[in-house]
Structure formats: structure tokens, C-alpha cells
């Protein structure tokens, strides 16, 4: 972020490095039920991101002193594989992934009906296999599908998208280069039914006008992303329907 470079991220025609217009999303694909032994799972491929989300539970929370007598605790664990980025990432939780795990847990908790499962714990494992900017939002979008796939009661999906400032222009869904050499990055996740925000972070600077522009771009993209989440689940039933073994 903020690193100056000679790369021109937006060309004279207003197109970005990968040929997208400012309001275009990268190709997005979600597949639900990819893991046999998880209660729910999803694989998301969003641009160059490849992320698996696996949900286990609700199950009794351990250690016992962590149990909440009123509700289930949601424990998301965001982890980047050592080979997921250009330069090998030192494996294991670091400051960044601990923070992301925390904000994702909180975002998911706002959609899950945790009060139905006192003393329980819902584990969400988000494994980034290949990273290409916007992994937290992609991981969150996939986890929400995985939770619905697990049959855990939830009020709504959680759908997210990023926007940012690149070469002085506000654009949707940053790619790796735009994230690294752009001026700002704004990931937002909402409950798409009522557009309530459950996650918002910002890296870099945006003016008030730019911020408004970025949020409205994201809000415009949310229904499209949510539609992909929904079809990931409903196609699971069709796959079973087409029969055979």
C-alpha cells in the first residue's frame, strides 16, 4: 500500500492492468460441499485467490472455561499457506492472520443464530491456498456458504467485496498489483438482505467523496456476489439429483 512505482495501473482508456473497467469484478466461482468430512465446506476462486473454508460444529466448546452459557462461540481461523504468496510466508499465525481471524469471527457471528446453541462452538477454518488480494473478504464469502452448507441456522449470508483507490481513481475489487501499489483498500462485508455492515476495514486514505463512491460501488456488487453464493448451494442439490452413484 502506498508504495510508489512506475507501473501504470490504469491505462489511457480507463482500463485496468487485467483489462477490467473500474466497476468490474474479477471472475468469481464458488463450489459448496468440497470436503467429505467437514460438516460444511466451500471452495472459492476469486481472481487468483483460491481459498477453502471448512465448518465443523456446532460442537461442545473446549476448553470448558471458554463456553458461553448463552450462545455458541464462533471461532474462525484464517490461515495462509506458506506457498500461497510469491515469497514464502513463514507458516503459522502472525499478527495479521490473528487480526483477520478475529474480525471474520465477529462478522460471521452476526449472521449465525448463535443463541440456539449454548455452550457450543462453531469452528470455521479458512485456508488460503493461493492469495491474490482480497483474501479476507473472499474467505468470509466462502465461509458463509460453508456455514449454510453445514445446516447451521443463520439469518442471512455474509457477502463481501473490496474497493480501493488506484492511480487516484476509485475502483472495485482490487487485484494484487492494485493492492500493492494503490493508495487505499476498503474491504466491506454486509448481510445482503438488509445491507447491514458486518465488517469494514480500511488501509490507506480516501476522501469522504471517494469513500462514498467506494461504498456505493461495493453495495452495487453485493447482489451479484450473493447470487453466486446462492447458486453454489442450490447447484449442490441439482448435482445430487442428476443421480447415478
Amino acid at each position: 500500500m502506498g508504495t510508489q512505482s512506475d507501473i501504470k495501473l490504469i491505462d489511457e482508456n480507463g482500463l485496468r492492468l487485467d483489462g477490467r473497467k473500474p466497476g468490474d469484478l474479477r471472475p468469481l466461482k464458488i463450489q459448496a460441499g468440497v470436503l467429505e468430512r467437514a460438516d460444511g465446506s466451500a471452495l472459492i476462486e476469486w481472481g487468483g485467490n483460491k481459498i477453502i473454508a471448512a465448518v465443523y460444529g456446532p460442537r461442545e466448546a473446549y476448553p470448558k472455561h471458554n463456553q458461553d452459557i448463552n450462545k455458541a462461540i464462533v471461532k474462525a481461523r484464517y490461515n495462509m499457506a506458506a506457498f500461497s504468496v510469491d515469497e514464502r510466508k513463514r507458516p503459522g499465525p502472525d499478527r495479521r492472520s490473528i487480526e483477520i481471524s478475529k474480525v471474520l469471527s465477529e462478522a460471521l457471528e452476526s449472521s449465525i443464530m448463535v443463541e440456539q446453541f449454548p455452550r457450543a462452538q462453531i469452528d470455521v477454518f479458512i485456508e488460503v491456498i493461493q492469495a491474490d488480494a482480497g483474501t479476507r473478504i473472499a474467505g468470509l464469502t466462502a465461509s458463509s456458504v460453508a456455514i449454510a452448507d453445514a445446516g447451521i441456522p443463520m439469518r442471512d449470508f455474509v457477502t463481501g467485496c473490496t474497493a480501493g483507490k488506484v492511480d487516484g481513481k476509485v475502483v472495485l475489487d482490487l487485484s494484487k498489483e492494485e493492492d500493492n501499489f494503490g493508495q487505499a483498500d476498503l474491504p466491506i462485508a454486509v448481510l445482503p438482505r438488509n445491507n447491514r455492515i458486518v465488517l469494514m476495514q480500511m488501509d490507506g486514505d480516501l476522501t469522504l467523496e471517494e469513500f462514498d463512491q467506494a461504498t456505493s460501488m461495493i453495495m452495487g456488487a453485493i447482489p451479484r456476489i450473493n447470487e453466486i453464493q446462492r447458486s453454489a448451494l442450490s447447484s449442490r442439490i441439482k448435482v445430487q439429483d442428476s443421480g447415478g452413484e
Binding site: 449472521s111 449454510a148 441456522p153 443463520m154 439469518r155 442471512d156 449470508f157 448481510l191 445482503p192 438482505r193 446462492r230 448451494l233 442450490s234 442439490i237 439429483d241 442428476s242 443421480g243 447415478g244 452413484e245
Partner: peptide
């Protein structure tokens, strides 16, 4: 021909109304 003879016709079967969270 098939383990479940009925399964071939599943695509044409009427299903109940399917909903997703938040619908």
C-alpha cells in the same frame, strides 16, 4: 443397468420449494 432404477428419472421429479438463508 443402475443401482437405483428410479434414479434415472430424478431430474424430472417434482421437488419441494427450496429456500436459502434469508429468503
Amino acid at each position: 443397468s443402475s443401482l437405483f432404477p428410479a434414479e434415472r428419472r430424478v431430474n424430472e421429479m417434482k421437488t419441494r420449494e427450496i429456500v436459502l438463508p434469508g429468503d
